[in-house]
Design a protein around this nucleic acid. Sequence first.
DNA 1: TCTGGGGTCCTAGGACCC
DNA 2: TCTGGGGTCCTAGGACCC
Length: 451
Amino acid sequence: MAKIIALADCNNFYASCERVFNPKLKNKPIVVLSNNDGIIVARSNEAKALGIKMGSPLFKVQDIVRQHKVFVFSSNYTLYGDMSHRVMTALEHFCPDVEIYSVDECFMNFDGIESNNLTAYCKNIRTNIKQWTGIPISIGIAKTKTLAKIANRYAKKNPSTGGVLNLFEADDLDVYLKATAVEDVWGVGPAYTKFLKRYNVLTAFDLKNANNKWIKKRMTVMGLRTVYELRGTPCISLETAPASKKSIVSSRSFGRSTPSRKDVEEGIALFTSRAAEKMRSQKSAAAYITVFLRTNPFKEVPQYHNGCMVRLPVPTQATPELLKFAKRALDQIFRDGFLYNKVGVMLSGLMPERKVQLDFFDAEQRQRQTEISKVVDQINDTYGSETVTYAASGVRRRWAMRRDLKSPHYTTSWDELPVVSAGLEDREQSTLDMEHLINGEDLDVINFEIL
DNA sequence: TCTGGGGTCCTAGGACCC
DNA sequence: TCTGGGGTCCTAGGACCC
């Protein structure tokens, strides 16, 4: 029997998160920016309708922003992470067998869900998630992940669906495939779109009917998998147990470009310790460390992009040792006379810490360094990140992010919790709104002020 | 003035071995 | 003059995802 796969996807996730705690934003255009307030990474429907494109730098749409009073936010990843966790936990209540695919999406295995009307079941999920978390979601149901993506996309774009589209055993599946442009198929990016269009493969339906051999030759087995999935044969399985990462990157653009070796060294040291911390939290050790740096490709300045990978003598988890090799790698590639805009560190060849072969002679010191690193992790976990840092990462924070427009940490900081307004003049309204909340009618109308 | 960050998988080709 | 063939491992680069 065919599997029943659903994809639940939060609508305009970051923008919706901002809206949950600020009802004034209802029906207003909102955009959320990347690190350093650089590019637009999320838009509310109203902002999309104004023609603001994903990925466009803020300064390029400044006119539209001013003219239409678009609300602009720096990214507040702490808030989004917490909201994501709330949504996922709520979804697990309806379907225990889930794969959290990204911060705002999850695949669900509906096998064994007792329901003779999946569409109604999903509409109910949707209502509940909105009520419990304030986040609107859409749900697509199909036989494969790729088709569930298509169903979800259609549901999101067409309000008449009520936010849910069931394409599992749908007689008119091809109608939806014909209505889906090939570039909107999961797994088809810009390069393949260009190629496919050249051969008049324009829609998901065309791709579904393409020749297997041709697809495999030109788009590798990955492309062929996509084609099978469009035909309803599952090739991409549900991964309900989160796999540990095979590589970990920490990198950042400088708020302002710098020619200074010291700045670059400190950045590298900071990113090395951050990456190492992530790595230890998944109990892995790294076999390689890569350091990379680059100038600003958008500026007309002398360009220099380079990276250097170093194989570690023994896979390690110890930050001091990683710092030493990061420095060594940087020495290989650093050149004076360039304005550096971005630097980063990648740890790769990750393996479970238990598998590491210890070198007899230096095992003791490495062991000690690892233990010290883990103690530092614990302190930072308890007292806040970067309570204890390594001297090599400096204290000047030249690379500190610009986030001038950040919203409060509504859900994760006691000092920034929203406060329900209890002023006399508002009391009647507040009470009314609290009843709405309790009845689950509409979270957005709660009338509170941020103090 | 201002253009993100963090991942995965596949393949071709070179190095190396027998 | 004639210059194998098969296997494995590694890496760089290209494609994709959010």
